[in-house]
Design a protein around this nucleic acid. Sequence first.
DNA 1: ACCCCCGTTTCATTGTGTGAACTCCTGTAT
DNA 2: ATACAGGAGTTCACACAATGAAACGGGGGT
Lengths: 250, 250
Amino acid sequence: MQVKTIRAVSRAVDVLYSFLGPEKELGPSAIAERVGLDRATVLRMLVTLEERGLLNRNEGNQKYRLGPRVVELAGKFLETDDLAGLAYPEVRRLRDEYNETVSIYIRDGTERICIQRLESNHSLKRNVRLGQRLPLYAGASAKVFLAFMPDEERTALVNSLPVPTGFRGEQLLVALPDIRQAGFAISLGEREEGIGAVAAPIFNRRGKVVAALSLSGPAARLNREKLYSLGSAVREAAQRISNLILDWSD
Amino acid sequence: MQVKTIRAVSRAVDVLYSFLGPEKELGPSAIAERVGLDRATVLRMLVTLEERGLLNRNEGNQKYRLGPRVVELAGKFLETDDLAGLAYPEVRRLRDEYNETVSIYIRDGTERICIQRLESNHSLKRNVRLGQRLPLYAGASAKVFLAFMPDEERTALVNSLPVPTGFRGEQLLVALPDIRQAGFAISLGEREEGIGAVAAPIFNRRGKVVAALSLSGPAARLNREKLYSLGSAVREAAQRISNLILDWSD
DNA sequence: ACCCCCGTTTCATTGTGTGAACTCCTGTAT
DNA sequence: ATACAGGAGTTCACACAATGAAACGGGGGT
């Protein structure tokens, strides 16, 4: 498929994504610098996107921020994605039973994205934002994706993973056979200090991994033995979710 | 501000919004018909939006659906919006205390959008989707927005509201002084049969209503007296949320 | 085998998106 | 007060990029 993409649209998406950075509000100049376009061009895009509700304009300082329509799109995505909706009862069961944060990730290129999550009630708890992007080279869920991926896909992926220099990723690969064997993966302080997690794969009807179910919390409550002891519970919950998936597609 | 908007971008947004309809997957032709463009044009937009992660392509049937990046944008919006995050503890308290669905709406033009929500545990419960759009001419939250709006803004708005023919909207306006007086509004089967709700305004530092906090559920549990008795609890929760808002902007 | 529908490609036309330069405004330093 | 800097919004002429009509090709159903 060599369809030519539309430059103006792609650039507008750049503008939209520039709001994913740390600042919540941006003006035309700042964005123009970021995306490498003329201020006039950016301004027209901002006005267009605002008119259509994807952005809002702060009349006070003449800056722009994300608009409520993006939430509507996300709501629709989560509704139609089957997964988030179907999985909710199991996510809730797990969270209630162990009172730790439970989340679901799907893979997006070389990263994973949180599409569902219920947090623990403890005051010290693992915190995950809906839509948050996390790497594929570390963490229990990441290992689940890697472990249950076709070999050729994995080798291709591993080479393109943006692994930070100095990260010891070798252990990651050697653990994969064990993970396939056990049906779940654990991690302790792997991606972030002090966090422990167990994760298991969610399969579609073709046996392909479409998501990872993860239970995570502070290492103080979730030490290595505890994580292993939770493995089968998480694996079985993930399996039950898999059974709910009707979709045969990739 | 008479900046010319960019046609291609605006059309691309049309394409994006066409996924808000009932079908979760759409092909170029279906979209083309919907937005009134040539199939070729739509295809280029689809490819562009997919390349940038806002859409996903189903390789099986060559159709498109919303992509995970929209969730990332929404997550960012909800994070930066302050409100959703700041309000969460109060929303949770209310939900836990009365075990009914609690939600927060912001106004967007002639509609309101749900930006935060926790559902009741009852098996019969009010169901609200994140990002769901509801009208401004009916419902407790709608009346809150109308009641606490500057007069000239309200009269301008009321004329442009897309009230369905046959809807008795007069009662709506006469109730507003009482709502201002009480600090909360109730509704019973107003927008949807069998639903009862109480709502109260959330103010910013300028005293402008930026959102409505709502508690709602089946009329079987929430009859008129019950709703009135919950009024002050909801009003006070909304007031506590208002106090958390640091933002001075409009 | 036929047809119809739909996704994709090609291509010529012109309308449209583009950036440089300009104005206007606001806030800050001198 | 005045000068200055930075940023928002405007104008304009040019080039090329977005567009739609038409053609292609494959898949599914009758």
